[in-house]
Amino acid sequence: MSSQTQTLEEKAQTIVFKIFRYDASKGKSPTFRSYKVPVVRGMTVLDALLYIRQNLDPTISFRVSCRMGICGSCGMLINMVPRLACQTQILPLKAKVIELAPLPNFPVIKDLVVDMDGFFEKHKEVKPYLYRIDRAEQENPKGEYLQTPQELEAYLQFAYCIKCGLCYSACPTTATDKKFLGPQALSQSYRYSADSRDQGFKLRVPVVDDPHGLWRCHFAGACSYVCPKGVDPALAIQLMKKAVITGKKPLPLR
């Protein structure tokens, strides 16, 4: 063992991870199991989970892919707040016990893995792609569509969405209304409608102007608070409300 590793181990603090354990296929009641993990500065919750799986319990399930906040796979409830495990450092949480649970508002498959099918279905409903009325042009574009910086600015922040589901899990309306489209899908309806290259605004209006669409948003703002990419879905929803009321495609923000 190198002296550097030794120093790290000496500096390590022991943090207890209480992790939600449940297997839908077995149908037993969920439980929390505790694991002690040596933690050093810079370690993330995902590092701790990988440590647990490698050293303490290989049966624990969680999603992971990029490990750098881009893929959106490792969303979970960390000390009651939806966060990405790969972006959440342990020591700044200032807690001796860290509780990990699956994202709320999603059915649990196993442990920290949730079923995101319904979430992606809602996402698809709002036609999250650039739509051209000319179908031939849609399939075989003749050239590039140029945008001014102002036109880009109109939707840019909403284009950073990584579909991790944190906003959806934090939303109080999604918790009560299972049919509510949710902040992610609604903000994406705005993202594409506000894009100067898109002509699908009128197609999206009937989807979002629904008893379980835009108008059920209470503007709690939890979606914007938890977004790991700095997207403001609550703002997008308000802007989409304005566009639907006026019946006009959103214009670049001033």
Binding site: T173, K179, F180, P211, H212, W215, R216
Partner: peptide
């Protein structure tokens, strides 16, 4: 009505 729609999910 909004509350009913929300709590009964349609």
């Amino acid at each position: 009505r909004s509350s009913i729609l929300e709590f009964t999910s349609g």
